[in-house]
Write a protein that binds this DNA or RNA. Structure first.
Lengths: 345, 345
DNA sequence: CTGTTAGCGCCTTCAC
DNA sequence: GTGAAGGCGCTAACAG
């Protein structure tokens, strides 16, 4: 096992001191150009590579940033991560990605792992609605490790967040259904103990009321973001004695489940029932029957979250005032809800 | 800034020595039970948390493993990663995920970052067909950091790999098209400088020949795994004076592109043209017209890759003999290729 | 400009 | 059983 070469090795080689080598390699101005070049050259020759661990131990910075998401295999989160990477890589940071699979214990474990890895900050989208009460999480806050929520957030003092206006996105989607002539608009919602889903519900409700329609809570059915589950939930809606003529689903996977169920009942989309989703997952566009959805500009969300983090790192001395960035959602109209002829592919 | 408490702090608190604290926390048998308990208790009281960086520096192990994939937003890679996590988390390892976006420079940069982070091993799916010649990569090999390829591999001495039998998967898919009565079967292939795609091509070709059909290289069109690109490539096939009646695409995204193009030309699937994909991405099942595909059991691939890594770590002393695990692919028949009535949803 | 020294937090002989 | 001491690799303060 060929041991890694250290600055001592190359110092010995040149009959100088490790400190000088360190300075040279860090391009300190207080080293003669000649020696600097010599050092860099021999370093290269000896296959020297800096041990970042030691550097991190010394400086207290690891240049690693943790990103915690519920799932990585959704285009939304993958894109947010991409946005984060785009901003952070050029600054020398590396991104450690963790997924929680929506499990609270995994969320906590991931935080622990990241803290152990001495990350310089954590960007996360929480699935644990009750996280403030968790000990590990409290510790995280106490440590003043920069923490930024994106998409799924909690209002916590000192914690910044980057989200989209879920209320508005839901409002736009529902309003669109109204415009298509829907009179009984149902809502497939997700876990409303999470802010985003609660806000989508509220946006839906407000749009219903503003349109002069009656809000009927039998038309609101809770589900989880899995196609099969959503399908079962949609079944409940179809079995109502007055079935809905429009469904606003709070995520694309639920919308897909609803569509499958509707088709399974030999009903037509959009003629009999209009459907809209949320998140603009690629498949909503790929589908034979493309799905109307709300785009959340995930790339931008990631970029902004990253920059909020960078700000916090730089201003660690100053008093931290949390930022609340809210992005505007965009409704993408497709076949699943459009009764007129023009189709926005 | 409340400084992190170290073993020295808790030693001072108890008027003992840091060494004892270290031993107690590592559950060494050479420390009195009473003191051990006392130490553990005060450690908890003082919110002590081990600095893994220091431990890593000392032990030379970081308990971090790097995983490099082309993209995380494909179900296939996301699932492989999940499989890796399932095996590695219980062993105390943490998984750092990096994506290359199929860019060779990013692949190299990621390797550098991971090595800097002192990862104990790297599991990767390469996109760089020419990687053996890269200096960074050569260094990686020289360092004897356990390296395991999964899915996309290169035959390199000392490097283990976990793949599926792409040849067989392609053979099965093509054979299925033959059984459906297709006589002119085309192939939308990806970059054949990568082994997996070359093998899928070879499997396709062999199945054609074994069926007594003529191999016609005008029916083989290269594309990239993007829907729009594949659509353009499919167009070329449809424009042939003798158009194909079956298409085997080497990935689901290409299959999707082909399907869109076929429909755009008012041809029917599967009546006029049968289509099969590869990878069994979820959307291939979700589609209105579900897509026949080849499942690669990604979860299992990840689990096995993780275990190969664990083996290598444990046997680092012994002579390393590389392992080549090859999984069996499974053909999932769906609507896009099935002319008879029975549909395997 | 360069060398000396000390310490980041932990572990691990070697003593007692 | 526990303490003392040294080192993992690097950097920064203080000298000269």
């Amino acid at each position: 096992m060929p041991k890694k070469t250290t600055i001592y090795d190359i110092a010995k080689e040149l009959n100088i001191t490790a400190a000088t080598v360190s300075r040279a390699l860090n391009d300190s101005p207080r080293v003669k150009e000649a020696t600097k070049e010599l050092i860099i050259e021999t370093a290269k020759k000896m296959n020297y590579e800096q041990n970042k661990l030691a550097q991190a131990l010394k400086s207290g910075k690891s240049f690693n940033v943790g990103v915690i998401v519920p799932y990585i295999n959704s285009n939304f989160f993958a894109s947010v991560i991409r946005g984060i990477e785009e901003e952070l890589y050029p600054k020398g940071y590396h991104v450690i990605i963790c997924q929680t699979h929506d499990q609270e214990n995994l969320e906590i474990e991931n935080i622990t792992s990241l803290l152990n890895a001495q990350v310089d900050g954590i960007l996360m989208s929480i699935s644990n609605s009750n996280i403030e009460n968790n000990t590990t999480f409290k510790n995280l806050l106490k440590k003043h490790v920069p923490l930024i929520f994106f998409d799924r957030k909690k209002d916590i003092k000192g914690v910044s967040s980057v989200t989209i206006d879920d209320f508005k996105g839901a409002y736009l989607a529902t309003q669109h259904l109204v415009e298509q002539g829907c009179k009984r608009i149902a809502h497939l919602c997700n876990d409303r103990s999470l802010e985003i889903f609660q806000n989508r519900f509220l946006g839906y409700k407000q749009a219903i009321l503003d349109a002069g329609l009656e809000f009927d809570d039998r038309l609101v059915v809770e589900t989880v973001s899995k196609v099969d589950e959503a399908r079962k939930s949609a079944q409940k809606l179809l079995n109502l004695n007055q079935r809905p003529d429009g469904i606003f689903a709070s995520c694309d996977f639920s919308a897909l489940g609803a569509i499958k169920e509707i088709k399974g009942n030999d009903l037509r989309i959009p003629e009999d029932i209009c459907v809209t989703g949320f998140s603009n997952e690629p498949f909503s566009q790929f589908m034979e029957l493309s799905i109307t959805s709300v785009d959340q500009s995930p790339l931008e969300m990631g970029r902004i979250a990253a920059n909020v983090f960078l700000d916090e790192v730089q201003n660690s001395a100053k008093i931290k005032s949390e930022k609340q960035v809210i992005l505007a959602p965009e409704l993408i109209i497709r076949k699943s809800s459009l009764k007129s002829i023009l189709i926005n592919q």
